[in-house]
Amino acid sequence: MKSKNTGCQCGGNSEANFTELAPVLEKYAQVPGSLITILQQAQDIYGYLSMDAINYISAKTGIKPAKIYGVATFYAQFRLQPIGKYLIMLCKGTACHVNGADMIEEAVCEHLGIKDGETTEDGLFTLNNVACLGCCSLAPVMMIKTADGEETFGNLTKDSVKKILDDYRAKEA
């Protein structure tokens, strides 16, 4: 899944900025039951769902903003805040829990100075705890998602997870 994060936190998107979303709406606005698909694609484009994006979708589809907001907040996938360049999806599934996912979370939080759902000040990392990535035999597991795709890391230890994060950070230097 491609995602582009503009990093813009001003929240002042005008309609002119939704040029990438326009073709999506052209395709789906009148197809019943497409709201989730539209929101998914909007999030793929902008990295998150801004209130402006919700209002824009509302104007094009005729669905009330309150309803769109209701759907967006119901599902774990949707974010209403921008995210960092690297999205850390830390698995908290049963197998990971039994194999020490809490310890890994502690290590990530300590290393990056953020908690679940937060983004580092430099805008590089966002931590999201997720229910299960389905790689249970390699527990504990995390996935790091970027604009270019995603990479999964298994059999994590406190030390290996720190090294992985450092490697990502080093790429930026």
């Binding site: 599934g93 049963t94 197998a95 990971c96 829990h97 229910a131 299960c132 389905g134 249970c136």
Partner: peptide, 10 residues
């Protein structure tokens, strides 16, 4: 497949 700890379907 929402059960945490299951990956048969995947």
């Amino acid at each position: 497949e929402g059960d945490p700890g299951a990956f048969m379907d995947r």
